[in-house]
Amino acid sequence: MSSHRPARKWARPPQSRTVAFYHRRVAELFAARVAASGKSWAAAVWDGALALTAADYQALEDELLASGLRFQMSAGISLVEAPEKYEQVAAVDDLDDVEPDADGRRLAGHGDNVFHVTADVVGTARFIKSVDVVMDMLTHGVPPDTVAIIDDSGGTLTAPILEGFTAVVCKGGSVRSHLGILTREYQIPCLMNAEVRGLAEGDRVQVEYSVAARPPYEEAGGAGRARVWKLAAEDGA
């Protein structure tokens, strides 16, 4: 196009669409501007009067967006501030395949209810997987609204802090396990033998402790299990 834009031997075009577009257009624009100035490259290259401005770069973005292209996002803030510029992508969440219900809840799993309570429990899912977590909660207190997600059904791991939980969802055992017995004694709503997925630490959940208790001698699993929902994120949270 211009002597101010030398052809590069050995070059191949950039691999990415936005890089290819911007690099071609920025170079064309600047080369044209230098040529129009009548100055040598050396005289023009650092001349502030010829430098591309934010408005010039903005015009290139407008040109690109006008072509119908939308950018892929990485940082949450980008989508929040300029949703019109970005492809709409679902949040990373493996419950994406689950349709939310009328209240925006997504079903995350089921479990056997240890005992019936009058209302479901809404709380914050916290995974009690390690001794460090338990030691930390022992030292600093169990955070309020904790729905403890526990792998182990023996009650061993959580013994010192069990009383602090708002509710328990235990991935193993049965309503007859020690943890079932202990939670019943503490009157802490509890699901045993739960299968849950798509929950992350800190998610808001609702657990259906209001269903009838699992008859202790019925086969585990099957119909009539209590449901666990992941709630929609709260505004401003």
Binding site: W10, A11, R12, S16, A54
Partner: peptide, 29 residues
């Protein structure tokens, strides 16, 4: 500051990938 309008997430990510990772840009060859 002037260059900021170019720096959407996709361009910045892909430019750095080519510059630092793939070393695929014209003046690098």
């Amino acid at each position: 500051q002037a260059v900021k309008p170019l720096l959407n997430d996709e361009y910045a990510r892909d430019f750095l990938a080519e510059l630092l990772g793939y070393i695929s840009l014209p003046a690098q060859q």
